[in-house]
């Protein structure tokens, strides 16, 4: 059994778990940054910037996100290749879209045709991360926008009364205070992000779903390396349990962070905490 669980392909599967964790580790801050930019844009005084921010938030909600995942991967890929195409091959005259084909010159291909396998994989992974960041950035922008508006007006007025400029008010008063209002929404988003990671499979990254299908399956029983029948059910059961544990742990940790952040805040929960201690 222990021998079975340590075959090369099983190692790849454990490695894929790492990929998922890596995705979470990169995406969460990136999405937060996107969300912060979006929320700041949406409350900007400069109208076009405000429109961009609001459209960004509005478009991504209301459409199944899996459609976005499928859309952005191709769209981003083509956008990058098109930009490189314009820079690297300026004297190319044929149109890029020829009927059903998307053609760019060989020098503009991403990744280059002759690059090694790992570059291809990393490029696919980066596209996936960017897609996740764009989609979840919109959700985060929505949460942060709400949180910025939830900061009591009096706090901002006090800052103005002290003679702070708009920029100073934003960075020194609004931003430090908004997190406690944003955290419930953000922790919800984190849960959703965890639960969205299996969609990596659809983006063509060899993630745990891919390996669970691959390893559990016995497509051609006579050739299979594994002396068992169709075990995919058990592999997916394991994945299910993995995700359940993951969400449970996150829940506990986020509750702790919330308790920390609430400490000393002028909210109902903060008041309750103060009374419980007294």
């Amino acid at each position: 059994m222990s021998c079975y669980l340590t075959t090369g392909k099983h190692m790849s599967m454990y490695y894929a778990v790492g990929t998922v964790l890596l995705l979470l580790a990169i995406t969460a801050p990136t999405a937060l940054a996107f969300g912060f930019a979006g929320a700041s844009a949406a409350r900007s005084d400069f109208a076009p910037l405000r429109w961009i921010g609001k459209t960004y938030v509005a478009v991504v909600r209301g459409i199944p996100d899996i459609a976005f995942f499928l859309f952005f991967v191709i769209a981003l890929d083509q956008a990058f290749e098109y930009i490189r195409h314009r820079i690297k091959c300026p004297d190319w005259t044929e149109p890029v879209r020829q009927g059903n084909d998307f053609v760019v010159c060989t020098a503009a291909k991403l990744p280059l045709g002759n690059s090694p396998q790992w570059v291809h994989e990393t490029y696919g992974f980066m596209l996936a991360v960017l897609t996740f960041a764009i989609v979840f950035g919109a959700f985060a922008a929505n949460v942060l926008f709400g949180a910025m508006r939830a900061v009591p007006r009096g706090q901002l007025e006090t800052a103005e009364a002290y003679g702070m400029s708009r920029r100073q008010t934003f960075w020194r008063v609004l931003v430090p205070q908004m997190w406690v209002y944003a955290l419930p929404g953000l922790s919800n988003l984190w849960m959703v992000l965890i639960k969205a990671t299996p969609l990596l499979f659809l983006l063509g990254v060899e993630d745990i779903v891919y390996w669970a299908r691959e390893l559990g399956g016995a497509k051609q029983p006579q050739f299979t390396d594994y002396p068992h029948g169709d075990w995919r059910m058990w592999y997916f059961l394991a994945l299910l349990v993995f995700y359940l544990c993951f969400t449970k742990v996150s829940e506990v940790v986020l509750d702790r962070i919330m308790a920390k952040l609430t400490h000393g805040q002028a909210t109902a929960a903060g008041e309750a905490q103060r009374k419980a201690a007294a």
Binding site: K195, T197, P198, F201, A212, R213, R232, F236
Partner: peptide, 8 residues
């Protein structure tokens, strides 16, 4: 757990 995994 993710719906996707539940489906699988």
């Amino acid at each position: 757990s993710p719906l996707f995994i539940q489906f699988f």
